[in-house]
Design a binder for these strands. Structure first.
Length: 496
RNA sequence: GCUCCGAUAGUGUAGCACGGCCAAUCAUGUCAGACUCUCACUCUGACGACUGGGGUUCAAAUCCCCAUCGGAGCACCA
């Protein structure tokens, strides 16, 4: 069979191994996709899904990946100036360097052009209703009086909207849809409103007072960018129906769309960008890369690898159900990458001093890595530090093994003391003595910042040479060495 | 209230478009054991799911209907 029809076998194998994670796409022609965040905060784990999935598809199908900043709300969801670069930086780190970067607030005049065309086609009108007033009418499928204004009037009003003649709230431009549409969410939606707060970007600042809303800006942009496939959160499913009115008036072709549900992460719960902003401002968190914060920057600082995050996001697939997941899977993925390369060191948290009577000063030798070879050397005298939790429930006379050093027997509990009883591994193998790790008294002062608090203690020398690397503190977990200052080391906790 | 949408083990997924090969895939998790001078890694084993009820059919996780549960939108937010 193999000889007769090798291509059949190959085909069978392919059928057996469907694409793990993302469903295959039916791409005809070019694929253009975009990830469109509002940079009103740094990219979060949630953003990474959008970045990874969009870029993964465009990679796979040789398409174009665009990042577009939907920053057209200078007031309520005011963009954060630093965040623009953070997005680009995190994208690059994730291996998702965009082919094109677009900033909506740079392209306002283009949106104005489309607005004028829509008005001329009778597809949009300037509405002076108060919000409540309009809603009341809309709820009973009734048009407001402004809906019937002719094009000339609308054009005049529109000019006045642009020139700043109206106050905020005084006038909006609405897209004429179907005022009796069965879904109230669709009825004559707002495309532009007036905001007199200057935009945070200095190049834009107070240049405009009429700002497009997302549905309008996105509609025009997706057409201009030639987007062929949109993947976005299901909170925007109705956008398609709304935006199609614009596309129909203009005679454009609407892109394909796909949606995904909300992602919630157990470890972080419901943290909103604005909530985080507040917590950072009041000092609850140290910044946007505090290990307790769900941003990509924080994960990076903790030593999560881009590949692990990518894989994690891809394997979520594209479901419309809301999902709630635990970072354990991400950690497992990361551990697979990091475990073979991370050097091992001793770090003693909550250190307790232990004197070992009868021990000769020596140099302990321990492998840098259990399977890779290379040794570290730790000079040690008669005094070591051990973890408080390891010696809390000891009995007098108990025998222990100090890992890679020697055996001891406890001779006193307070103060803690012990005596040297040899180096033979039989203590562990036959007597099943516990092995604990330790640190020399002249070690480094180490602080570990982790999602559930800070640990401080003493680490062996050598750690200071691992700046920026992920290492494993034995019996503690993986950490990334974040800073070294003299004899003081700061590490960020990666995971168990 | 109106309009959409979804439901497979603790979690996340595969399978559903073309019903049988599904007593249901993979990963993670949990438990047990092996290995190991780490409670890490690796290995072995166990645990664990088609929301419920009807219908169509020789045959349903897959198709249809109802119910239940969950979610989204109904903003001059994105």
């Amino acid at each position: 069979m193999n000889n007769l029809a090798p291509e059949l076998i190959a085909e069978l194998k392919e059928k057996k191994e469907p694409e793990k994670g993302l469903p295959p796409l039916d791409v005809k022609g070019d694929l253009v996709m975009r990830f469109a965040p509002n940079p009103n905060g740094p990219p979060t784990i949630g953003s990474s899904r959008g970045i990874v999935v969009n870029s993964e598809y465009t990679k796979k199908y040789n398409g174009k990946f665009i990042i577009r900043f939907d920053d057209t709300d200078p007031a309520t969801k005011r963009p954060m100036l630093e965040a623009y670069d953070w997005y680009l930086d995190d994208c690059e780190w994730l291996g998702a360097k965009p082919d094109e970067v677009v900033i909506a607030s740079d392209r306002i005049p283009k949106y104005y052009e489309v607005a004028v065309q829509l008005i001329e086609k009778g597809g949009a009108y300037v509405c002076f209703c108060e919000q409540e007033e309009f809603k009341a009418l809309k709820d009973v499928k009734k048009a407001c009086p402004h809906r019937e204004q002719n094009e000339q009037r609308n054009l005049g009003y529109w000019k006045k909207m642009l020139s700043g003649d109206y106050k905020e709230q005084e006038a909006v431009l609405r897209i004429k849809t179907d005022i009796a549409h069965k879904d109230p969410a669709i009825r004559d939606w707002v495309a532009f409103r007036i905001i007199k707060t200057p935009h945070p970007r200095p190049e834009v600042s107070d240049k405009y007072v009429a700002w497009p809303l997302l549905d309008f800006e996105g509609a025009v942009e997706d057409h201009m960018l030639g987007t062929t496939l949109i993947i976005r959160g299901k909170d925007l499913t109705d956008s398609e129906t709304r935006q199609r009115y614009v596309y129909d008036y203009m005679g454009w072709k609407y892109p394909e769309t796909m949606h995904w549900g909300r992602v919630q992460i157990h470890e972080f719960g419901k943290l909103s960008t604005s909530g985080l902003k507040k917590a950072i401002a009041d000092g609850t968190y140290t910044g946007w890369d505090d290990p307790r914060v769900p941003t990509i920057r924080a994960l990076r600082r903790r030593g999560i690898r881009a590949e692990a995050l990518r894989k994690f996001m891809i394997e979520l697939g594209l479901g419309e159900t809301d999902i709630s997941l635990s970072l354990d899977t991400l950690y497992a993925e990361n551990r697979k990458i990091v475990d073979p390369i991370a050097n091992r060191y001793f770090f003693v948290w909550d250190p307790v001093e232990l004197n070992v009577e009868g021990a000769e000063p020596k140099v302990a030798k321990a492998p840098l890595h259990p399977s890779r070879g290379g040794m570290r050397e730790i000079p040690v005298g008669t005094k070591v530090f051990v973890c408080k939790s390891d010696v809390e429930n000891l009995n007098d006379g108990e025998r222990l093994r100090l890992k890679d050093l020697y055996n001891i027997q406890i001779t006193g509990l307070s103060p803690l003391s012990a005596k040297f009883i040899g180096t033979d591994m039989d203590l562990v193998k036959k007597e099943k003595a516990r092995i604990i790790h330790w640190a020399p008294p002249d070690g480094l002062k180490v602080r570990v910042l982790s999602p559930d608090g800070e640990y401080s203690g003493i680490g062996e020398r050598g750690i200071e040479k691992e700046l920026d690397n992920v290492v494993q503190f034995e019996r503690f977990g993986f950490v990334r060495i974040d800073g070294v200052k003299g004899d003081e080391v700061v590490a960020y906790y990666t995971h168990k």
